[in-house]
Design a protein around this nucleic acid. Structure first.
Lengths: 309, 309
DNA sequence: ATACATAGTTGCTTTTATCAAATGTATTTT
DNA sequence: AAAATACATTTGATAAAAGCAACTATGTAT
C-alpha cells in the first residue's frame, strides 16, 4: 500500500508535538520515585494474568537483567508477588499485591488530575472532539480495528444535523464506491426533504449507529401506508464494516416494524449494492422488480425488494 | 470549565497507548548514539531563535547541570555553536551548526521511514483519517489555535458529499447556537435540493474552507437572475472563528460576483445571526426588509440584506 | 560598596539501563 | 541414564543518563 507523504509529515509533526505533551503528562511520575519503565512493568503485570518475567521482556522490550532487579525491588516493597509455576520450575507468575494495585491507582489519579488541568480550558465540545479524535487514532492504528461493539453506541432519535450527515454519507460513499455523481446526492437530498417534512416520530423511526458522536451506520423505517413500510438509507461506514453492524441495524429495524404491526416491508436499491442485497435475500426479502436506468452517471438496475413480516 | 470524565478516560487511555507507540517510533534513536533528551534539546534549539540554556531548562524541564554537559558535548561534536549575548555577559545564545541540522534531518528521515512502515498497512482513507485526527488534536490542544492559514485550504468545487455536509453543519450549528429545531434543517434540505437540481457550475459558485478534508466554512453564490445573485449558506465552524475566515470567504464571494458582472447581491438571514449581520453591514450591505416570524421553534426576525456591487 | 539574584558550570552521586557470564531448571540427544 | 543443549532467570561489572548541591561569574538593587 502506498503511503501519502503529507500523512507522514503530519504523523511526524504530531509525534513531535505529542512527545512534549507526554512529557508533561508523565512528569508526576518523576516525582513519585518510580521510573517510567517500572510503571510500564506494573501496568503490564496488572493487565495480564499469569505473566512471567520472560513475557515482560518480550512485550516491553526491556533488558532481562534490569527487569530482574526491578522485580526484586518490587518484591521488597511488597508491590508484586511471585508464585512458582507448577509446570515449569524455572518460571514465576507475577501479580500485583493490594499495595501495588493501590499505588497504580493513585498514580493514575495523579495523571488524571493533570489531564483534567489540561482539559479545563477547553469548551465542552472541544473536549468531545479531542476524545473522538483520539479514539479515531487508536481505532485506525490498532491493527485489528477491534473496538467492535464496545465503542459503538446506538440512537433512535433524529437530532438536528443527522439528516445532513446522512446525506453527506450517502453522497460521499456512493460516489466513491459506486461512482455515483452529484445527481445521486441531489435525489437523496430531495427524499430527505420529503421525509423530514412529513416526519412523524411515532411512525417513522431512525436507527443510527454512532462512533463517539459521529454517525457510522443508519437505517430508516418510513411508513408508506397503514400496513406497509419502506426501509431506506441503509448504510454502514466502510471503516466499520464486517462487524455485524449492518445485520444488527437491519434486524432492529425489522423488529420495530413487526412490533408496530406493519405487515409488509419493501426497499429500493441498485444492482451496485451487492453486499446489501445479499443480506436482504438472506433475511427473507425477494426481488420483486428491476428497471434498467441510466442515472447518477452510471448504467445500473434499480431494484425493488419485498418481504412479508 | 467542567471536565467530562469520559474524556479524561479517553485521554488517559490514549496517553497509555501512544506512549507505547512513541517508544516504537523512537526506537531508532537508541541505535544512533543520541539520547532522547539530547534530541529534544537539538530540536528545540533548531526551533527557537536565540535560545539560551536557561530557557531550555525551563521549557524542557531538564536539569541545568546535565544540560550544560550535553551542550559542551554538542560543541565538541560541532553540532551546536554558542554566541555570547552582548546585553548580558552571563548568557549564551545557542544555534545549530550545519552539521547539527544535517544530523537532525537524517534522524527525522529514519523516523519517517518508521512512520511509513507503520502506515503502510493502512488504506488510503484510513491514512487521511489518521492525519486529520492528529491535526484536530494538535489544533484543539495548541492553546492559541494558531494553525490559522497554514492548515486551512480552500476549494471552489462542489464534490459529492459536500451538500450533505453543509446541511449537517447548518442543522447542527444553528440548533446549538440559535436553538433552531428540525424544521430549520428541513428547510435547508429543501433549499439545497432545489439548488442542486438547477446547479450550474458557471453561474453558481461554492467557496469552501477546509481543514484537512473536512468543511469548516462555506459560502455559496447562487444566480437569481442575469444581474442579481444571492449569497447563501454562509457559515464558519465555531472552532475556526476569529481567524478572519468569514471575512475572507465573503470577500472571495463578492469578488467572484463582480468578476462575473453581477450588479446586485442579496442575502437572507435572521436576527439571531448577529456576528454575521455586523460583518454584512461593515461590508456594505443594507437591511432592506425584515419580517417577524415564529419558525424553527423560535421567535425571530427574518431579514433581507442588499448591496449594489 | 555591599548584598542579592541570575546564568551557567563543575564535582559528586544516584538512577537507569546494558552486556556478559553464571545458575538452576527443563528438554533433547546419544 | 548421562550428557548435551536450551531456556528462564539472576548476578556481576559497567556505562550512560539524570539529578543535586556547591561554585564561579556576571548582572541588579539598595
Amino acid at each position: 500500500m502506498s503511503v501519502n507523504l503529507e500523512v507522514v509529515q503530519e504523523v511526524s509533526d504530531f509525534n513531535g508535538y505529542y512527545t512534549g505533551l507526554v512529557e508533561l503528562l508523565n512528569r508526576h511520575i518523576s516525582e513519585s520515585s518510580i521510573s517510567l519503565s517500572a510503571l510500564r512493568v506494573l501496568v503490564k503485570v496488572r493487565q495480564e494474568e499469569e505473566i512471567t518475567a520472560g513475557k515482560l521482556v518480550e512485550t516491553l522490550g526491556i533488558d532481562g537483567g534490569y527487569l530482574s532487579r526491578m522485580l526484586k525491588a518490587f518484591e521488597g516493597n511488597h508491590l508484586v508477588s511471585k508464585r512458582k509455576s507448577t509446570a515449569d520450575g524455572r518460571t514465576w507468575f507475577l501479580q500485583l499485591t493490594a499495595k501495588g494495585k493501590k499505588l497504580l491507582e493513585s498514580l493514575e489519579e495523579q495523571s488524571n488530575a493533570q489531564i483534567k488541568e489540561l482539559l479545563s480550558p477547553l469548551a465542552d465540545d472541544q473536549q468531545k472532539g479531542l476524545a473522538a479524535a483520539m479514539k479515531t487514532i487508536r481505532h485506525i492504528l490498532s491493527e485489528e480495528s477491534q473496538l467492535s461493539t464496545s465503542d459503538i453506541t446506538f440512537r433512535r432519535q433524529l437530532l438536528p444535523g443527522d439528516a445532513g450527515y446522512l446525506i453527506y454519507l450517502h453522497g460521499s460513499l456512493f460516489a466513491k464506491e459506486a461512482g455515483f455523481n452529484l445527481a445521486f446526492e441531489t435525489s437523496v437530498c430531495k427524499a430527505f426533504y420529503e421525509f423530514l417534512e412529513t416526519y412523524n416520530a411515532s411512525k417513522d423511526q431512525v436507527f443510527l449507529a454512532l462512533h463517539g458522536t459521529q454517525i457510522i451506520g443508519s437505517i430508516v423505517v418510513s411508513a408508506f401506508s397503514r400496513y406497509v413500510v419502506q426501509i431506506r438509507w441503509y448504510l454502514v461506514h466502510p471503516d466499520f464494516r464486517q462487524m455485524g453492524l449492518g445485520k444488527k441495524l437491519l434486524n432492529e429495524a425489522l423488529d420495530f416494524c413487526r412490533e408496530k404491526g406493519f405487515q409488509k416491508v419493501y426497499l429500493m436499491t441498485t444492482s451496485k449494492q451487492e453486499v446489501a442485497t445479499n443480506l436482504f435475500k438472506k433475511t427473507g426479502f425477494r426481488k420483486t422488480g428491476e428497471k434498467q436506468l441510466s442515472m447518477y452517471g452510471q448504467q445500473l438496475f434499480e431494484e425493488r425488494y419485498d418481504m412479508d413480516l
